[in-house]
Design a protein around this nucleic acid. Sequence first.
DNA 1: CGGTATCCTGCTGGATACTG
DNA 2: CAGTATCCAGCAGGATACCG
Lengths: 123, 123
Amino acid sequence: MPETTPAQPVPQITAEHRELLDQTLDKWSLQVLDCLCEQPLRFNGLRRAIPVITQKSLTATLRRLERNGMVDRVVVSTRPLAVEYRISSLGRTLQDLVDALLRWTTETMPDVERARARFDELP
Amino acid sequence: MPETTPAQPVPQITAEHRELLDQTLDKWSLQVLDCLCEQPLRFNGLRRAIPVITQKSLTATLRRLERNGMVDRVVVSTRPLAVEYRISSLGRTLQDLVDALLRWTTETMPDVERARARFDELP
DNA sequence: CGGTATCCTGCTGGATACTG
DNA sequence: CAGTATCCAGCAGGATACCG
């Protein structure tokens, strides 16, 4: 069926929802959430788990996730201080989705590579 | 349970998988896929459906999605030409995931807003 | 209609240094 | 240990103009 309906007002993703997705599924957030779903970790524990992330990006990512209620930041006032990050119950609601997403990439990657090869060798 | 295991090599998301997610779930791709899942659309049809997107971004998005095999580009050689974009079978495998993602944002948005309000009014 | 081409800017994210 | 502060480069994406 070709395009018939003219300018049908397609249900827009609102800026708000888009922003939440951006702050949740971006490069670092996804990996941080993935790590924290397995176990609580401290700042440098996370750095070790995701070696390529910079301090600045990790801080920013954790702040955003904390602000959105996805992770809890637990401060233990010892000397020196210990700060533990744990996935929140809200963050847990994402786990299945994230897993499904990662499974999807793994499963479709071969098809994607074939599609790319075909596309790239065109005139 | 506090952090016990030391530097456990957390299963990294590979750069390849990360790239695919970036090229699939980014701002514009998600909306384009969402539109095309409902019906095939032509270039300017898509522009009308997503009025805030620029020509350049739409072109780039469609090229990437096409290259990854997510959408099919069908050229009808009339004068002037018509080019129709349709979701591919590979792209269809994303539909449930995208829907689930959008449902998740809708469902959790209230909690997120409460979390943000709490976070923002801290000392 | 369905795009390229070009220029330009704002913002992300890296490197580096310092602190409670 | 767990960050903050600053500077800076690269590039994604917008505005604009033009083409088959």
